[in-house]
Design a protein around this nucleic acid. Structure first.
Lengths: 225, 225
DNA sequence: TACAGTTCGTGTCATGGAGACACTTTCGCT
DNA sequence: AGCGAAAGTGTCTCCATGACACGAACTGTA
């Protein structure tokens, strides 16, 4: 079986992965972009991504690109494939099909120094990005849509925060993703009713009344599919 | 721009599409399978699919494979990409990445004669399929999951039926997809409240009380994404 | 033409989740 | 002590969902 090879109908294509990686910073939802150092679209901003290597799973490839192109310090808390872009003209170099991924990085991961063969990397407002290379604006829009959908019935928002967090912080994550304000009381009611949050007993001080700190309940890890 | 070519990092892979095509037949949800005529997995049943051709969009490739491998008579009413399978060992011939699609064929499309380089094609119970080649059992399971999700908030079930249909017929489609019975009164209440159905005035006779015929309301085409 | 068989069509009540809505509490700072 | 700032809290309404049983309309046959 291992000696079989690809039949002639299998016209080779370039297989790439692109990653829309999000994090919260300054109360805003940010997306990680790299500045391209090569043609095509040199000096343009783009989603981190690149070609899949032999024997490498799509998931692994997405992780590798994230690490080598952007020098982010932490592992993503969530990584999920969400759509494959394969229109014939989408890359001027030839036929490149890209499996787009959605990643969530925890708070505290936001320092980025650039790396690999890019000119740099940085965080940008996810809802108002700069002009992007290739069809990456489309990819980003769809990633945001997926993120919104995931909010409804998953615990994904928790992945943006440190292990321990306050309810107002969590609310700000939801608001940043949905790009609209939410009612405080309804938000708390809904979240607490889901039973995935456990008060840690601690409180956090600041300019105002201290907030109760919460922790995710055990056995509530997101199915990182 | 057109003279650029793929960089050396782009290790070539085989790019394929596979299609899980569903239709209603005999009150049951059926999936379209082909019997493979070539190695690997010769004589095994598999989802229709094959390699994408140069310059061909993924969507087009899925349509072509559906037509040439199975000689189905009608166009699918819905075609949607839902996941890309790219684990290194999934195909013994080498690195093959498959973009899996979900298709819905209208009632009346069920005659299938086989074609292309397969030994035949046929319909099988979607929830109890025969053993399948490659990782197609996994693909089918995920296609069914997607179909269920789509039922909740889309008009996808209508695509299984002819232009004009009765409410009990539509209910049977939902029941077949969910693989469980539904309450008649609640089902009618919910569907009619959605406002996507319009009584056509006609009735359909049979062994029992005649049923009201319905038609989809204008401007309610499924976003075939 | 009467009856049996078969399928279609209909309404109420209880429950649970979601959204609108305003004031009090607790702390830090001056 | 007082002020500013943010956290925390409860009620009511509305809508969607699910459980539940019987009469109505037609076909075919005796």
């Amino acid at each position: 079986m291992e000696t079989l090879s690809l039949p002639p109908q299998a016209t080779p294509v370039g297989l790439a992965v692109d990653v829309a990686a999000f994090a919260m910073h300054g109360g805003e939802l940010q997306v990680l972009l790299v500045q391209r150092g090569e043609l095509p679209h040199a000096r343009a901003w783009a989603l981190p991504g690149g070609f899949v290597q032999p024997g490498e799973d799509l998931h692994e490839a997405a992780l590798r690109e994230l690490r080598t192109e952007t020098a982010v310090t932490l592992e993503p808390r969530h990584l999920e494939q969400f759509y494959t872009f394969g229109a014939p003209g989408r890359d001027p170099r030839g036929r490149v099909v890209s499996v787009a991924h959605l990643a969530v990085l925890a708070h505290g991961t936001v320092q980025v120094t650039g790396g690999g063969h890019t000119l740099g990397a940085g965080w940008f407002p996810a809802h108002r990005p700069p002009p992007l290379a290739f069809d990456h604006a489309t990819i980003l829009t769809r990633a945001l849509g997926r993120l919104r959908v995931r909010l409804e019935y998953a615990h994904l928002a928790l992945e943006f925060l440190p292990d321990t967090f306050t309810l107002p912080e969590l609310q700000r994550v939801h608001e940043a993703i949905l790009d609209r304000p939410l009612d405080k009381r309804n938000f708390r009611k809904r979240l607490l009713a889901q039973g995935v949050l456990v008060p840690s007993g601690e409180r956090r001080s600041g300019p105002g009344r201290p907030a109760q700190l919460y922790r995710r309940a055990k056995g509530t890890r997101t199915a990182a599919l």
